[in-house]
Amino acid sequence: MDSLAASDGVLRPAAPTAPPLLKVAELRRSFGAVRAVDGLDLEVEAGSITGMIGPNGCGKTTAVNCITGFDRGCSGSVELQGRSIARRQPEEIARGGVMRTFQAIRVFDGFSVLENAAMGRQCFDGLRLQHPILRTPRFRQVERETRARAEALLETVGLGAKKGELAGSLSYGQKKLLALAGILMSEPKIVILDEPVAGVNPTMVHEIAELLRRLNAAGTTFLIIEHNIEFVMALSDRVVVMDRGRRLASGTPAEIQQDERVLEAYLGGGDGGL
């Protein structure tokens, strides 16, 4: 992959010659007098894992809702591969290849695990209305591909044995994995995970970290919003620290750990530290 330089044997984002995959500038969102996001700048390089951390209420989830179009009241620029996606409808942004999970996890409880995964691809397989209704040969072909891909991805995230069960019967952590599998069905350009390990038991946190590493090595770009600092530091190529609605600092995990502003404003402030 040419966006990655591997000169020292470590995968790391290339020098910023190409424009970043996702570029957010001057993002703002206010609720009354509260400036939830207050001029946030953010770049995500293709092929990277970028972590975003920050104290509670610093505007991380609001920023994600702005980027993915679910929050309609934001201003600022959001560019995907140099093209503006700001203020588009969320489904159009998803179709453009920006996929997200939700902090309060969402799956279709009444459908099987396999169907939940398959739903992630149905808007991307190029079939028009008549194909599924008339069960055309092309539809059956696409359906076979979708099924094979869904089964493979469910294997990858460790839900292979659960594919026939109702999604509603899964545990909280398993639902998170299912949501991730569903998103990956469409081969998105960037996956934004809103707190992927919040409320997940420590063993599973480790498994999810491993899974994300493998998926990233296979080419998926991630932007991860998370409270679990250890998790983000261990996983990310770059880390963005958010504070009061803006970017306080950004850099490699090592740089962030040395950054005095960060240590002072956030990490050193009796919040568990590093």
């Binding site: 993915t68 679910f70 409808q89 489904e91 969402r106 009444g110 149905q122 998103i183």
Partner: peptide, 12 residues
């Protein structure tokens, strides 16, 4: 069942 989730998967 969940319009928001459907939209996040690209459903118009």
């Amino acid at each position: 069942h969940d319009e928001t989730l459907a939209r996040s998967l690209g459903v118009r």
